[in-house]
C-alpha cells in the first residue's frame, strides 16, 4: 500500500447556492497517475483547485489560465519554477541577463517541449499551444514530485501532446491531470476519476478500460 498524499472527505463546494462539488471523498496515493474526466462544467477544475489548496503548494501546477508573465520570455517563465531556490539578487541578475548556468539548466526543458527556438521570445508573442508548453515547462522545472495540470495540452496538437504528456509522466512520481480528450486520458493514466454535475460517478483503474466505457459521463 502506497502512502496517501492528499485526501478529501465528503467535500461539498457551493457557489451562489448551487453545488459545484457534492459530497466528494477521495484519496490520492503517492505514485498514482490520475486523469480527471467529465464534461466541461462538471467540476474538474474546482476539484483540482481544491486538491491544490489542500497540498502545501509545493506541487507543480499548470492552471487552466496558465499563469504566465506575458511580457517575459520563455526562459524567464520557465526559470520562475525555481524562483524560491535563489536569493533576490541572483533572481534579479537572471531577469536582466540570463546567466550561463541557468541557461544550461533551462534549455533542456525547453528542448524537450519543442520550445528551444523560442527561448527568448516574449510569451505574449507565442501561439496558444506554445504558451501552454511554456507553462508545462515551468511546472517541470520546479522539480516537484507531484504535478497538477488543468487541461495542460488542450491547445497542443496531437503529435506534441504525446511528447508533452510523456515528459510530464516521466518527470513526476504523482500526476493528476484534468483532460477532455478521453483517449489521451486513458493512455497516460492508471486511474480515472469521472465527474458529472459535481458528483463523483466513476473512480477506477484504467486497466482494460475502453473509451466507450466513459460515454455515460458525456450524456445528458
Amino acid at each position: 500500500m502506497e502512502k496517501t498524499l492528499f485526501s478529501l472527505e465528503k467535500t461539498t463546494i457551493q457557489y451562489n447556492g448551487h453545488a459545484i462539488l457534492s459530497d466528494i471523498s477521495l484519496r490520492i496515493e503517492e505514485g498514482s497517475k490520475i486523469a480527471l474526466v467529465g464534461q466541461s462544467g462538471a467540476g474538474k477544475s474546482t476539484l483540482l483547485t481544491q486538491l491544490y489548496e489542500a497540498s502545501n503548494r509545493d506541487v507543480a501546477l499548470v492552471p487552466q489560465e496558465l499563469g504566465l508573465v506575458r511580457n517575459l520570455s520563455v526562459f524567464h517563465n520557465i526559470y520562475m519554477g525555481r524562483l524560491n531556490r535563489h536569493g533576490a539578487f541572483y533572481n534579479i541578475l537572471n531577469l536582466i541577463k540570463p546567466t550561463q548556468k541557468e541557461l544550461i539548466n533551462v534549455r533542456p526543458v525547453a528542448e524537450k517541449l519543442g520550445l528551444a527556438d523560442k527561448l527568448f521570445a516574449p510569451v505574449q508573442e507565442l501561439s496558444g499551444g506554445q504558451q501552454q508548453r511554456t507553462a508545462v515547462g515551468r511546472a517541470i522545472f520546479k522539480g516537484s514530485p507531484v504535478f497538477f495540470g488543468d487541461e495542460p495540452v488542450s491547445a497542443v496538437d496531437e503529435h506534441q501532446s504525446h511528447t508533452v504528456l510523456s515528459t510530464i509522466m516521466k518527470s513526476h512520481k504523482t500526476v493528476i491531470l484534468s483532460m477532455h480528450d478521453v483517449k489521451l486520458a486513458l493512455h497516460y493514466s492508471d486511474r480515472v476519476i469521472g465527474l458529472k454535475n459535481g458528483v463523483k460517478v466513476l473512480d477506477e483503474s484504467t486497466r482494460g478500460m475502453k473509451t466507450s466505457d466513459l460515454d455515460d459521463l458525456y450524456q445528458e
Binding site: R57, L68, M80, N84
Partner: peptide, 8 residues
C-alpha cells in the same frame, strides 16, 4: 495570475 503557481 502567475502568483498562484509560485512556491510559497
Amino acid at each position: 495570475t502567475s502568483l498562484k503557481t509560485i512556491s510559497q
